[in-house]
Design a binder for these strands. Structure first.
Length: 647
RNA sequence: GCUGCUGUAGCUCAGUCGGCAGAGCGCGUCCUUGGUAAGGACGAGGCCAUGGGUUCGAGUCCCGUCAGCAGCACCA
């Protein structure tokens, strides 16, 4: 008996009945068989060792594909589970899936696994790989599976089975380790070569904080040594760029116990960066018809009752402060203040749109475990704005906003992707379906008219607003939360925000709530990592350092310094009693983009010798030429070459 | 918040079996006056996070607290 198998390249081959995808792969080539991890039979994913039941279309999945890699990782998690079982005995297993860039497995066991133990587990995994243990699949009824796992004391597996609706399930065994698993898996453990365990951590069973906490081991696998090393290097590069480390090294910011956790102290260098961002931000906003407002850091609780924040989000707010019997709150957002400014007089449709912007500092409660450097803090400054407009104006406002987003994100060298997040299932009922629809359409039309590429996130809007979320991609390709634009369907009604239309009647105002940088703390923290501390010249806290070669050159250096300072540049002299090589080293450590080196030759010819971070030693240049070049680079907000090269 | 790990000089860290508090970098003074990623000598700098306990004796062992880190959970 023969069966015919048609392959993705269109060829059809005949095989004896009872053959497996692995046999097919071997018949095609040893290389393919070696890289194969699973197969797709008539579109259904299957193990390599399964029997091909009949004539079919067959596709061999290899480790080179996303899908193949995921299968390899998933299989590696099983091998890790076996290793843990062998080493530590009584283990109750949670789940062990493949995830982005790797895999994990959750364990419930007496022994506390520390990162020092990972080496042992890895070693054991290596042994298991050497044993070439097969992954054996068995189909059984749910009842059988329950009694199997019950007899093994695997209570979490039993719990999982109780939620399974299908009549039968598959169970995979690898050596002593038996797992409830859909599969597929690699044929045997010998295919596992390039893996590494990365970390241990606690994780709640099924992700619920009310459930017991299990021990989770993270690891990763790749098809080849090269890919694994490349990944590990990228992890290392990310560590090197950690804004907490660079923030300390460059003296940008700090935190202090006595001040309190989650509260940022901006040092002069960090404040300089922020100041430049803020100035640029203000220019761009003023140019686009925004007006700046300032609102207090605390407000009576009444306003947050009205806005709905107290009933809805009180957990995020700090406790009330009693002032002469009135309860006040430190402000968790800026909206009410802006609305009150809008309402301080009667507004006509002729006044609209009104755009209020504020770098507004807010305070929100974050659980201690959530705090993280500048990225997750308890006090932060939002680049907030509220646009008050008519329904007719909304699309145009959205379009203009996308232009502003494009401008700002481009200036910082971020690539991005926009998402239109629509009404969630549980959402504000006080706004009508038409209002939700109209707001969502306005966002969509704005995106279309501006021509910004976007994806739709169905049901991912907030409780009270459809929104456009923009995700940023930094220099390492990592994702960051970016700008957000929300059409608020809640506040106009709650506060009765109205304007007088051309019909002389009151109409409800549209309020667009938006932030582009998000919070200055998070944004600057992200920028540090994005640029690895090598900021573009316009942001660099110290733009130029002048390095006199000997004491004899200090006077001339000072005149050079004066010239730069007069032009508004941030420059300093390193007149320490050190050799030039040391000063160069030191300026490099401090991540100063330009060094001007001054010796006899320069003093005589009235030049400076330029050493830039981008191009290294550039030789002698006239003073005039240098300051023009720097001015142009600052003015254009040019991104560093080291940065654009990486892109 | 939860689980685990870690707190020693400004920073990065060593400190063995419980027996005198250490290194490098940085900082200061002096020597050296030099050409593009670290010249030399000397010096200052510590309530070993904090409170308790065990002990003749605690940086070291035990318990609590505080803080940091990783992950989980959380993030309108």
């Amino acid at each position: 008996m023969k069966i015919s198998v048609s392959l993705p390249d269109g060829s059809i081959k005949e095989y004896e009945k009872g053959t497996s995808p692995l046999n097919v792969a071997e018949s095609i080539g040893a290389g393919l068989a070696k890289d194969a991890v699973a197969a797709r039979i008539d579109g259904e994913i299957a193990d390599l060792t399964t029997t091909i039941p009949q004539d079919c279309k067959l596709e061999i999945i290899t480790v080179d594909s996303e899908e193949g890699l995921e299968i390899l990782r998933h299989s590696t998690s099983h091998v890790m589970a076996l290793a843990v079982k062998r080493l530590y005995g009584d283990v109750v297993f949670g789940i062990g899936p493949a995830i982005e860039n790797g895999f994990y497995y959750d364990f419930d066991l007496e022994k506390v696994i520390s990162s020092d133990d990972l080496g042992n587990v890895e070693e054991e995994m290596g042994k298991i790989a050497g044993e070439a243990l097969p992954f054996e699949r068995k189909e059984m009824s749910v009842e059988e599976a329950v009694s199997l796992f019950d007899s093994l004391g695997q209570r979490y597996k039993v719990e999982l089975l109780q939620g399974i609706e299908t009549p039968t399930v598959s169970v995979y065994s690898t050596g002593d380790f038996v797992d409830l698993c859909r599969g597929p898996h690699i044929p045997d453990t010998s295919r596992l070569r390039h893996f590494k365990l990365l970390s241990v951590a606690g994780a709640y069973w099924r992700g619920l904080a009310s459930n017991p906490q299990l021990q989770r081991i993270y690891g990763t696998t790749f098809a080849g040594k090269k890919q694994l090393n490349k990944y590990l290097q990228r992890v290392q590069e990310a560590e090197k760029r950690d804004h907490r480390r660079i923030g300390r090294e460059m003296d940008l910011y700090s935190m202090d116990d006595e001040i309190g956790k989650g509260l940022v102290l901006w040092h002069p260098n960090g404040a300089e960066i922020r100041e430049n961002i803020e100035q640029y931000w203000k220019e761009e906003h003023r140019r686009r018809g925004y007006e700046f407002v300032l609102t207090p850091h605390m407000a009576s609780e009444r306003v947050y009752k009205r806005s709905g924040h107290i009933p809805q989000y009180e957990d995020m707010m700090y406790a009330p402060i009693d002032i002469e019997g009135d309860r006040y709150r430190v402000k968790p957002m800026n909206c009410p203040g802006h609305i009150k400014i809008f309402q301080s007089q009667m507004r006509s449709y002729r006044d609209l749109p009104i755009r209020y912007a504020e770098l507004g500092t807010v305070y929100r409660f974050e659980m201690s475990g959530a705090l993280h450097g500048m990225l997750r803090v308890r006090g932060f400054t939002q680049d907030d704005a509220h646009i008050f407009c008519t329904p007719e104006q909304l699309t145009g406002e959205v379009e203009a906003l996308l232009g502003l987003i494009d401008e700002l994100m481009g200036a910082f060298g971020y690539e991005y992707q926009a998402y239109l997040a629509t009404r969630p299932e549980v959402s504000l009922e006080t706004a009508s379906d038409e209002e939700w629809e109209r707001a969502t359409e306005a966002l969509r039309n704005g995106l279309e008219r501006y021509g910004m590429d976007y994806q739709v996130d169905e049901g991912e809007g907030t409780f009270y607003a459809p929104k456009i979320d923009v995700k940023l991609f930094d220099a390492l390709g990592r994702q960051w939360q970016g700008p957000t634009v929300q059409v608020d369907l809640n506040l106009p009604k709650r506060f009765g925000v109205n304007y007088i239309g051309d019909d002389g009647m009151e109409h409800e105002c549209i309020i667009v709530h938006r932030a582009i940088l998000g919070s200055l703390e998070r944004f600057v923290g992200g920028l540090i990592e994005h640029f690895a501390g090598w900021f573009p010249l316009w942001l660099a806290p110290e733009q130029v350092r002048i390095l006199p070669i000997t004491d004899n050159h200090i006077d001339y250096s000072k005149t050079v310094l004066d010239g730069l300072l007069k032009k508004g540049m941030r420059a300093a002299i390193d007149d320490r009693n050190e050799k030039t090589g040391y000063k160069v080293h030191s300026a490099t450590q401090d991540k100063v983009p330009y060094m001007l080196i001054i010796g006899d030759r320069e003093v005589e010819s009235g030049t400076v010798s330029v050493r830039s971070h981008d191009y290294g030693d550039e030789g002698a240049v006239s003073l005039e030429e240098v300051s023009q070049r720097l001015a142009a680079e600052i003015e254009s907000k040019a991104l560093p070459k080291s940065f654009t090269d990486l892109r």
